[in-house]
Each structure stands twice: as C-alpha cells, then as structure tokens.
C-alpha cells in the first residue's frame, strides 16, 4: 500500500519556503491573534463586572500587549504588501524587495513599541 501522505502540519512547516512563507504563517498567526483579542475584548466590555475585569486583566498584561501589538502591526504591514501586489500584479516580480521593505518598516516600529510597553510595564 502507498503511504498516505507526508505533509502533516509540522512536516509542512519544515518546507524551506524562505521569506514569503514565513510572512504567510505570521500573517495567519497575527490574524488569529487579533481575532481572539477582539472577541475577548468585546466580551469583556459587554460583560463588565468581575468576569470582565478578569478578562481585562489578561489582555492588559504587558506580555499579551506585546503579542497583540505584534499581531496588529505585522498583519497590517504584511496585508498592505499583499494588497498592493494583488492590485498591481506587475509589481510581483519585485516581491523579494517588497519583503525586505516590509521588515525594514516592521522591525524598527515594533522594537520601539515593544520597548515603550516594556519600560512602562516594568517601570511602574
């Protein structure tokens, strides 16, 4: 009998897809992360009271804030790259450069924000 298939979830992650595949995975993580955040946030605001405060306590933790800022910023910048390439396919041959630009924008902005969040959280 033939082997069923050899592309389970973790095998798939091992494929050497380089830059764009990484951004794809991070884009999904970012989107899912924001989805979880927004849902819990709305629930918290809606419920308020003890339950609401408990949930608030989770996402106001600095670790969660860094995570959610990562999600939003990366998803946003990467999404803009995808949108531009999709609407102007003639730019697609320059996709490698597009990814460099993306990281060049993302890394400083995120570092700065993460630094601010950390100093605020650990300083107080």
């Amino acid at each position: 009998m033939e082997l069923k298939r050899n592309a389970g979830f973790f095998t798939a992650l091992k494929y050497k897809g380089q830059g764009p595949m990484l951004t794809f995975i991070l884009h999904r993580i970012g989107g899912l992360g924001m989805g979880i955040f927004v849902t819990t946030h709305i629930l918290a605001s809606f419920l308020s009271g003890d339950v609401g405060n408990f949930i608030n306590g989770i996402y106001e933790h600095w670790l969660f804030q860094i995570f959610i800022f990562f999600c939003a910023l990366f998803h946003g910048i990467n999404g803009l790259r995808i949108t531009l390439l999709d609407l102007f396919p003639s730019l697609i041959p320059h996709q490698r450069e597009a990814i460099w630009v993306e990281w060049a924008v993302f890394i400083p902005v995120f570092s700065f924000a993460a630094f601010t969040i950390l100093t605020t959280a650990l300083g107080s």
Partner: peptide, 13 residues
C-alpha cells in the same frame, strides 16, 4: 468592516 474582514479570514482558513 474589520469584523467582516476578520470573520472572512477565518472562513478562508
């Protein structure tokens, strides 16, 4: 807009 965008993203996945 954001919830439509996001929920559709989940559907896509």
């Amino acid at each position: 807009v954001a919830s439509a965008h996001g929920v559709h993203g989940l559907v896509v996945i």
